[in-house]
Design a protein around this nucleic acid. Sequence first.
DNA 1: TATGAAAGGTTGAACCC
DNA 2: GGGTTCAACCTTTCATA
Lengths: 155, 155
Amino acid sequence: MDDLDALDKRILYTLQRDSRHASTSDIADEMDVSPSTVRKRITRLEDRGIIRGYHADIDYQRTGYQLHTLIVCTAPIDAREQLAREALDVPGVVAVREVMTGGENIHVSALGADHDDLSRIGQDLSAIGLEVADEDLIRNEYVNPFDSFRSADER
Amino acid sequence: MDDLDALDKRILYTLQRDSRHASTSDIADEMDVSPSTVRKRITRLEDRGIIRGYHADIDYQRTGYQLHTLIVCTAPIDAREQLAREALDVPGVVAVREVMTGGENIHVSALGADHDDLSRIGQDLSAIGLEVADEDLIRNEYVNPFDSFRSADER
DNA sequence: TATGAAAGGTTGAACCC
DNA sequence: GGGTTCAACCTTTCATA
C-alpha cells in the first residue's frame, strides 16, 4: 500500500463531508490541479478499496422505523469475519462492525418498526451462529469527516 | 411527521446504496415520475432532517491511520446528547453514537496513526466529561441499505 | 501520471398545472 | 404536491505530453 498524498487526503475529506455535491472541479480548484486529475485519483482510491462507496446518512428515527437498535453479539474468532458478512444479509440489518476483543466482537445495527421485527432479527442472528449478548436502542448517531485529511500537508 | 410513501422510500434506498452516482433521472425512470419530482422529494427529505448528509465510506484500515478504535464511554444521562456532540469535535473522532442504556451510553469511533494519538483522544474525551470505559480496535465495518426501503409497496 | 477538449448527461431555477 | 423547459455545470472518454 502506497501512502496517500495531500491531494488524496483532500479528496477523501471532501467526499466524506458531502459525497453527493462535491464535484471534481471543486476539489481541483482547491488543490490547483485539473478536474481530470482529481477524477483519476478518485477512481484509484475506489480501485484500491480505500473508498468503499457513498451512502446517504439517514436519520432512521424520523422514518417510521423507530426502533434503531444496537445488537451486541459474540462470534467465535475464526468465524467472525464470515459471520459479520452473513449478518449483513439479515433483513433489517443496516450495519455491522467487527471489533477486536475477546467476546462481544460483532456489533450489529438493525432497524425495526416494532418489537416483533427485532425479535425476528435476533433469531436470525442466532440462526447463523451469533450469540446475542445485549440489545439497546440507538438514540442518535453523528458522523464527522476525519480532520487529518482536511489540510493539505503530507504525512 | 408524515409517513414516507413508496417514492420517498425508493429515493432513500437508492441514495443509501450509492449517493454519488444515483441521478434523479435514474430514480425518476424507475418510479415513473419526472426528475424534478424526485428532486423536490429529495429536498424535502433533507429539509425534514431525514437525510442528514452524504458521506464517502472510507476503509481507514487502508489509509495509514490503522488504529480505528471503538471507545466506549459513559455520560450522565442528562448530559448525554450534549457530550455526544462535543465528542464529535475531538480531533480524530469520526463518529459518535448515543445508546439508550444505563452506562456505556456513548460509543465513539476514533482514528489514530499511533498509540499516542489514541491516548490523547482518550484524554480529550475525559476532559469534556466522558468516562472512558473500554477501548477496542475496529477490524472492519460494513454498511447496507435498509431493505424495507427497497420495494415500492406502501407501509 | 497529468492535462485538455468534445459529447452527452445532470442539475437547479423559474414557471405552469 | 407534480411536470416542463433551458442554461449552466458536470462527467466520461479519448487523444496528447
